[in-house]
């Protein structure tokens, strides 16, 4: 780790973090989650829809790390490791599915699979 990164990371640590600052981080997380939701609902490309789910995972990670820092314990960080695991598994499966669907219809349009519903 570089000295700069260490200096950024260790400033104010292990002093407790004020609740107002926690609120700033949670707001970033909520905004990123909402952007992910908007993208998932409105974009039509399957790959971008999965990128939007990754955005939502990322937002959850920021909230977990912020709470972990607020309470000064490491459980939140540990759960981000599991979020990463699930994201990796999801990416592998979802992308395999996307390739399969693309080979069948030669399009990535989500609405071209509308007859799957029901």
């Amino acid at each position: 780790m570089t000295d700069l990164a260490l200096a950024i990371a260790q400033a104010d640590f292990p002093l407790p973090m004020p609740g107002a600052t926690l609120y700033h981080y949670l707001l970033v997380s909520a905004l990123m989650f909402a952007i992910g939701v908007i993208g998932f609902v409105s974009r039509r490309n399957l790959i971008i829809m999965f990128l939007c789910t990754e955005l939502m995972f990322q937002a959850a990670g920021i909230a977990l790390i912020a709470f972990s820092r607020f309470h000064l314990n490491h459980t939140g960080e540990t759960f981000v490791i599991f979020v990463l695991t699930v994201a990796a598994a999801e990416a592998a499966l979802a992308l395999a599915l996307v390739v399969l669907l693309f080979r069948r219809k030669e399009t990535l349009d989500a609405s071209s699979w509308a007859e799957l519903k029901g």
Partner: peptide, 29 residues
């Protein structure tokens, strides 16, 4: 966001995030 993790003193997760996400998952994408 790994910069935000660093500000929250979570160095390990910041670098794991870059390695796993930017290095592996996004390359798959």
């Amino acid at each position: 966001s790994s910069g935000l993790y660093l500000l929250l003193s979570a160095e390990f997760m910041a670098f794991a995030l870059i390695i796993v996400y930017a290095g592996a998952i996004l390359i798959t994408y």
